[in-house]
């Protein structure tokens, strides 16, 4: 779990550093007629669903341990 979280956060750092590069996150989202805004929206939905899945799994694990 901890390794997974570390991987996840290091990936976040990659995204953040990419966003602070020459182009800047503002320009990425405004380029190509704003198609990346759709990508961001889908990413948010997926992230929420995954967070939810992990929460469910934690409850399942508790049940399994009993």
């Amino acid at each position: 779990m901890r390794t997974l979280l570390t991987i996840f956060f290091s990936m976040l750092f990659a995204v953040v550093s990419f966003a602070q590069g020459e182009t800047g996150s503002e320009n990425i989202f405004k380029s190509n007629l704003k198609i990346y805004v759709v990508a961001a929206v889908l990413t948010i939905i997926l992230a929420c669903l995954f967070a939810f899945m992990f929460a469910i799994e934690r409850r399942l694990k508790k049940l399994e341990e009993k």
Partner: peptide
């Protein structure tokens, strides 16, 4: 203003 983000209609609105 909307451009490609019109596709968000299928993801944001149904939520």
């Amino acid at each position: 203003i909307l451009y490609e983000t019109i596709r968000n209609t299928f993801f944001h609105v149904p939520m």
